[in-house]
Amino acid sequence: MLALDRVSKTYPNGVEALARFSAEIRQGEIIAIIGGSGCGKSTLLRAVAGLDRASSGCVTLDDETISSPHAKIGIIFQEPRLLPWLSVADNIGFGLADLPATERREKVARALERVGLADKAQAWPRELSGGQAQRVAIARALVPRPEVLLLDEPFSALDAFTRRDLQDHLLDLWADTRPTLILVTHDVDEAVVLADRVLVMRPRPGRLFDQIEINLGRPRDRNSPLFENFKRSVLTSLDRSLDRSVPDRDATQGPGQAMWW
């Protein structure tokens, strides 16, 4: 289980990006974090990734405190961030340097097959389309079998069609090993398609505002009325989060939480 306990982050210039964010996330759960700009979504994700340290509070994975990048936690960024001097196959195998070459090759070949880019193994990153590059980034993050995979607006730079395709693809890959997914997004559709639970954050300072369970079976039909219902409730919550006249509710004791435990 991934536990965030009153995680706060104040930047040296005094900006309070994140204030006392707490959440408990079960192994294998898919969480979408959504919120207006400047609500600390990315700050939160970077703290969980161990890339930045929280000013106070702590992140623990199975009772292990996360203060630097951890082997069990992978991350996918908004840009693919492939290393341009490595072939696609070597990019995917980047995190497997400790393995013997044959084993590494095998895993990379399987991952390439899995993301449908087997024919691109020896291509350079510059020869890939945006969607293909992001697939390689997904494969690179998944190949060391992380228990937690963080995604920072991973599909926001892609066109709508490619985005849908990759969302389905991500779920498909997720089903292989069922890692915990934490997805930061500003796309309500994406949150409802993917997540078991949507956390809505509100800005200045960034904090948890609401959480919404998406009790929908998979695969989810984007056109079903039920899907529309969930989308509407996420949107409503998002609107309320940006409305300053709505007071904070104590999110840790919210109704969503009660349904889980």
Partner: peptide, 11 residues
């Protein structure tokens, strides 16, 4: 910096 960060996430 973004590329360096990739290196950091792979420790």
């Amino acid at each position: 910096r973004k590329i360096v960060e990739v290196g950091r996430t792979f420790r």
